[in-house]
Write a protein that binds this DNA or RNA. Structure first.
Lengths: 221, 221
DNA sequence: TTAGAACTTGACCGTTTGGTCAGGATTTGG
DNA sequence: CCAAATCCTGACCAAACGGTCAAGTTCTAA
């Protein structure tokens, strides 16, 4: 019987088989939820993607909603762990550039995580509004305060710090969520190349640093 | 019987009742597809949103797939009509600012259109790859050429023109697709205020014009 | 006024869906 | 080695799904 433990990926107090299967299922679920949303995803599709019979998915997670919740929690944990990057005493230019690089790494390496999150937001975020209103809001306010402090100290040019963070998010995540669009426009065959991500990263760093007066605008020819 | 005319919204050669109902259904469908994706949307939900019995939806559109196609075509037509904005001989700063304003107007006024499109992209764009690879690709190349021309003439600072357009898109559409996220972080109750859209518009214009050397970077205090 | 075209819709159908379960197989700790 | 715990899964079910249809109502143009 399923001992009523809310199954999550990082629960190390579990047996070997359990851990392996949960990981397999969550990975498959992330992919299927990313590509179909919660309502459009089927447990049968997740089972096939995971290479397990459907009943096995229900054995570990009970319901589709609980599995979705587990996937969401996993993604939020990943998000939060990638957040800590910006610190008070660092150099503005390198700190911003490092943060942009870290977010772009996530877009490149975990696009499905970003897509599940995007799906949830598009639908009005009924299941993650708590996270948005607390952890994320606090993170933005905390980091915006640091930027404002840098501005006050004259270490970067005045800029709307909160909105700068919003738009760094939108620019970095577009390369995960809407990859096909940019691949099509760039003439790639469905998938972007690593150099496309590198070029995008450099561009976003440029646009942000120029805006903050941390990188000179090249003179007009 | 449904005379085999591919029903679309702007078909003015139709009867009054037909036109009204098609409009009602497409509006409802856009909302339901935006919130659930193609697979997650149900014809019953669309019918209820439209205030019509389910059989009536099938009377006008046949299948869910055809209705989705009609909604998609409607959105693409809207997208393309909002594209023509950037012309060769205009002033770079005002042209870019006007384009950003136009895109933000769309995000504010037709968020569901943007969301349906976003859903389709997240899913890998199986039904709009043709549009991405032709019309959109050509538009980007055409407009990027104009930006490059401006740069050559010394009318703006050197910048990766294609990627500038990509990121203008990502920054403007985030305010439609992910509105709840920014509303939550800004402490609004689910919905953004008009002034939030205005502030975002101003910010995006600022970041773009600064990057292009078309607006001075304020001196550090 | 009237006949045909267009529209309406409750009832229905086959399929897919999320979820259950019993009974067997495998793993694990002592 | 054994027995208890855990894992496995084909078969099954009720509900929800996309779609059909026939019988009726309303509209329209002559």
């Amino acid at each position: 019987m399923n001992v009523e433990t809310n199954a999550t990926a990082d629960d190390s107090s579990q047996g070997r088989i359990r851990q392996e299967n949960i990981e397999k299922i969550m990975k498959a679920a992330e992919k299927v939820f990313a590509g179909n949303g919660f309502r459009g995803a089927t447990t049968a599709a997740i089972a096939e993607e995971a290479g397990l019979p459907k009943a096995n998915i229900h054995y570990y997670f009970g319901t589709k909603a609980k599995l979705y919740r587990a996937v969401l929690d996993d993604i939020i944990a990943l998000w939060l762990s990638s957040f800590r990057e910006i610190g008070e005493n660092d150099d503005p230019a390198t700190t911003l550039a490092d943060y942009i690089r870290a977010k772009m790494q996530l877009s490149q390496n975990r696009p499905n995580a970003s897509k599940v999150f995007a799906n949830e937001l598009i639908r009005g975020a009924p299941r993650i509004s708590g996270y948005l209103e607390t952890e994320l809001k606090e993170w933005v306010e905390e980091k915006a305060a640091i930027l404002d402090h840098w501005i006050e100290e004259g270490r970067m040019a005045p800029v709307d710090s909160k909105r700068l963070l919003f738009h760094i998010w939108s620019m970095t995540q577009t390369w995960a969520d809407f990859e096909v669009q940019w691949a099509a426009v760039l003439g790639r065959k469905k998938k972007l190349k690593a150099e496309d991500f590198d070029a995008a990263t450099d561009f976003i760093i440029t646009i942000v640093l120029r805006t903050c007066g941390l990188q000179p605008i090249p003179s007009r020819s």
